[in-house]
């Protein structure tokens, strides 16, 4: 999927724990249960707020649950009907493919931009770097819909600053150019918007990794006459590799289910060409109140997401085993 998927070293593998002084005495019952008691509130909260709704969604996906059933309190099991109706709709397959491609494009854009800016930050003087960091934090802290509105103004057909600037630069054909009249250009604008909002997090994460790389290694590399690219490949990259993997897969999860920006820009239009799976979910569930069908789509989304992040989950599990052994 992306270049980072080829990593074979477990992400986040921790250094071996320091040897303890002597074998601890056998812990008493109370001591052994305390950690679990301390964890309990968080675990219970997560089970109630995340686990239970997730189970409900799976259950509802096998039921016919429209407004009528909801109001009358009926439970109507329909087996796989919801899945059949979703999967037999060719439009859903197009939208799934579109959503996956859109996610990949957003993630690649986000991680590459974040990586470049992070590497750049290491080379900047402290004043410029702080200015850049403040800008990144501001871009990050602006509410999603506020940024979305600003983007809509930038790309406005008549009054948008982008078209006006392009015309001033000599590209006369952009006078009154409509950025939202085809699905491809609408998705490009939405993609830019998502990348814009996602870059700061990725950038700071990777930058933190770069800071952890020992300064002496860079000095050694420069004494050995390493080029910039060689220094990056041999010194920086090992320090940030696991963080880049982490950022990539977190981005996959976030970008795959992004809804607010897609909906706010053009409600999945024109002609439904910027419709992604979360938009379908909204239309079926909230707009048409077919909660059963919407739940089936939600389950399918989880499956696609699991497939997309399978590699990362595999790495996670493997690193767990490594810790245990």
């Amino acid at each position: 999927m992306t270049a980072t998927a080829q990593i074979t070293v477990p992400a986040g593998s921790s250094p071996p724990a320091p040897p303890r002084a002597g074998r601890p005495r056998r812990a008493g019952f109370g001591e052994r249960t305390v950690p679990y008691l301390l964890l309990a509130p968080a675990v219970i909260t997560m089970l109630v707020l995340l686990g239970w709704p997730a189970i409900q969604v799976v259950g509802i996906s096998f039921r016919k649950l429209d407004l009528g059933e909801l109001v009358r309190g009926e439970v109507v099991w329909v087996g796989l009907d919801n899945y059949v109706s979703v999967l037999s709709d060719p439009e859903v397959w197009t939208i799934t493919l579109r959503t996956v491609l859109f996610t990949v494009a957003c993630v690649v854009g986000t991680v590459l931009a974040g990586l470049l800016i992070a590497v750049l930050m290491r080379h900047l003087s402290s004043k410029v770097r702080i200015a850049l960091q403040v800008c990144l934090v501001l871009a990050w802290a602006t509410p999603i819909l506020a940024t979305t509105t600003v983007f809509q103004w930038i790309f406005d057909q008549q009054y948008g600053i982008l078209n006006k600037t392009l015309v001033k630069l000599g590209f006369e054909s952009f006078a009154g150019f409509s950025w939202f009249s085809s699905g491809a250009s609408t998705l490009t604008v939405i993609g830019l918007l998502i990348v814009w909002q996602a870059v700061p997090f990725v950038c700071f994460t990777i930058y933190a990794g770069l800071l952890a790389a020992p300064r002496e290694l860079y000095e050694a590399a420069s004494i050995d006459g390493a080029s910039g690219w060689q220094t990056f490949a041999t010194v920086s990259w090992p320090a940030i590799r696991s963080l880049v993997t982490l950022a990539t897969f977190l981005s996959v999860i976030w970008d795959f289910k992004v809804f607010a920006q897609v909906w706010a820009i053009r409600q999945g239009g024109p002609d439904g060409e910027s419709t992604t799976l979360p938009v379908v979910l909204y239309l079926k569930g909230i707009a048409q109140r077919h909660f059963g069908v919407a739940s089936a789509i939600a389950v399918l989304m989880i499956i696609v997401l699991l497939a997309l992040t399978a590699r990362y989950l595999q790495l996670l599990l493997r690193s767990r085993e490594a810790d245990v052994s």
Binding site: P53, K257, Y282, G285, I286
Partner: peptide
């Protein structure tokens, strides 16, 4: 998946209701 969770909460909250 937030949407799905919202649906589940909304419907879970109404379980057993109605039909009176």
């Amino acid at each position: 998946m937030v949407g799905a969770a919202a649906i589940a909460l909304a419907t879970a909250g109404c379980a057993g209701s109605g039909g009176t």
